[in-house]
Amino acid sequence: MKNILVTGVKQGLGLQITKTLLEQNYKVYGVAIGLSADLQTLKSQHGDRLNIITADLANIEGSIEQIFTQTIGFDVPLHGFVNNAAVAYDDIISNLNYDPLFRMYQINVFSPFMLTKHVIRNMLLHNIQGSIVHISSVSVHTGYKGLAMYASTKGALEAFSRTTAREWGERCIRSNCLVAGFMETGMSATLSVNQKDRIFKRTSLKKPTELDSVANMVEYLLSDKSLSVTGSNVFVDSGTI
């Protein structure tokens, strides 16, 4: 059974990824900012195959202590890491404030960089040919008013992932970004119906990206079905072209 570390599993896409992985017989170490009814239901259905770690990723050193020192330790081999946790600080650039910008970079960028360090070390210790998947956003590739700061955090992940692939490829550790389109999750809840319609009209399919499509692509990238896929950005975005 493969052990996968997934962040941001309380709700939305992270919850869906966790559900998909559990259904396909993975063991999930899921990092959540807190418990939700849906997450508790998953726990009751899957028992020991879901290990919930309650941690605030904005507290980088504290969360690494909780995840790696207290929970995973040296004896659990990690086969995959899904960097899903993120916050969105949306505003036009002329209104930019440093504090929320810094917090977003802690959660969306600095924390996943540090988690990747520990994930790679774990994979080296256990001789695992592992897979890392970062959840990116189509906003990196297509401009959206108000998303400059958020898009920049995901762009940082895409650059980080590509070099992770290059640096660790000879150890057969893979790294890819899943570039997700706009989904109907809590992260887009602040958008008005009109704003959402405008976003969806820019897609080929004229509709939101399905969480299920994203979660299944994550599972593909984690699995041995994708052994030759690394350093890539895989778009699951209703065809935003």
Binding site: F74, I120, R121, N122, L124, L125, E167, W168, E170, R171
Partner: peptide, 13 residues
């Protein structure tokens, strides 16, 4: 450098 990373984590364990 990659071998030294592996060495580091094995010593840390």
């Amino acid at each position: 450098s990659l071998d030294l990373a592996e060495l580091t984590v094995r010593i840390e364990k």
